[in-house]
Design a protein around this nucleic acid. Sequence first.
RNA 1: GGCUAGGUGGCAGAGUGGUCAUGCAGCGGCCUGCAAAGCCGCGUACAGCGGUUCGAUUCCGCUCCUAGCCUCCA
Length: 492
Amino acid sequence: MVQIFNSLTGRKEALEPIEPGVVRMYVCGDTVYDFCHIGHARSKVAFDIVRRYLEYRGLRVVFVRNITDIDDKIIKRAAENGEPVETLTARFIQAMHEDYDRLGILRPDHEPRATQHIPGIIAMIGALIDKGLAYVAENGDVMYSVSKFPGYGRLSGKRLSDLRAGARVDVDEAKRDPLDFVLWKRAKPGEPHWPSPWGEGRPGWHIECSAMSYDILGPRFDIHGGGLDLKFPHHENEIAQSCGAGHEFARIWMHNGFVNVDDEKMSKSLGNFFRIRDVIGEPGASGPQVVRDPEVLRFFLASSHYRGPINYSLEQIEQADAALLRLYTALRDTPAAEPTTGAAPASDAAAQFAAAMDDDFNTPEALAVLQGLATELNRAKAAGDGARSARLAGELRHLGGVLGLLQQPPEQFLRKQRRQPQAAASHRESAAQDAAPAPSLSEAEIEALVAERAAARKAKNFQESDRIRDVLARAGIQLEDKPDGTTYWRRT
RNA sequence: GGCUAGGUGGCAGAGUGGUCAUGCAGCGGCCUGCAAAGCCGCGUACAGCGGUUCGAUUCCGCUCCUAGCCUCCA
């Protein structure tokens, strides 16, 4: 039984899908006016793992993740760039897909965009006005009247009076209550606009998620997810809108914690953020940036529980690299056969893995199970037990796959270059640590040197073979001699 | 100020009312021509002070500290 921490109740609750066997979930996506940063990656990876695990448990998941492609920031950025809004958003949607694909984040079943759901948005605003929950303000904007919705503040645990007391200045004159928020915004000259009963304009930010989740998933669904920073006001407002319109809306609310840098929240406004491609490199570029493979970033993100904070640093990334290296090293020289499926009895490891993941997606514990499996696999390999090795390797790959990990050939992963010094230098904590760049060798050059060394070893010329090993070591190549006389190589 | 999460060994990071997380780093051993990888073993970790308990890192209270939200933000 999958237990999920529900932000709405503050408790872990059993997931009991509305329609047995089917989980409908909606996750808040990105506003596409810039490249995605690793905070976005954390949220997307977290919910990707939720989805993969639920599917592993035999549930069908209908996964919706929206794209906000119209809003103030987009309009502002497009104006700054002197380009049409659609050009800007198309570019960053493509970049987003590139980044997420490389992180192994599965594409959602539905990826609705605000601009494609204007009719649904208008319909919902109309319903809210009819119910007396929204009003047309003097400036022509349509506002949600927060005080008319009794449950307001339930999700974020806030009271209206507290919120008002803490409200910052610059209260919009058009609002009857400082906490009221915009549903439909009157277009200013030159801004994108759509016709509506309240004049030419565009949707406010919060309404799109209410309208799109309704259009695609209907009046009630199982899980709604997003970053902790969306809890208030965004999700609070979504609830006010959807429930105000008479829908049951989401049953379980999930919020992922922040990515911190130097123990401070990473955010655009603080300017302390790393873009995904600062870490995993530009798509199609030859070398890596900070990590040898995007999978390292994914592993790092999975190595702490999704609800807590995670502190990004080069040291953490290197620990993730080392841990992942151990897994792939264990997988080396094991058959890549498909895991046993069907009637195979569930193993201890699979049971432990499921117990960890059932408990609110405890990925660190699940990862510990994978490490235990690697130890067993190493033992079996050392004992020459081929059948057991194959079974354990298959299981390791299979369970790793549930987390979106361990799906590439081990040698391919192990031979990737770990990082380029100049790129790491952009990470301030490491700027001073990078010595002279290591000369990088092509695979052919490496193979040639390895062959040369093998000949020297065969002739018992250990002085020469050690010399070659040193040359390779300085180029970041680590050798491992196998008992049969052949040699592995990987990049450190 | 109001509200909410936390404080676990050198570094990360799970978890539990009473033998074991896990990874990295470190130490010892095995293996190896030497290494590397791997395997085996090792470390009086649970912020502080009280309380409940036969027994608390785990439950309760207080104190100190940290982060987040209350404003756009994954």
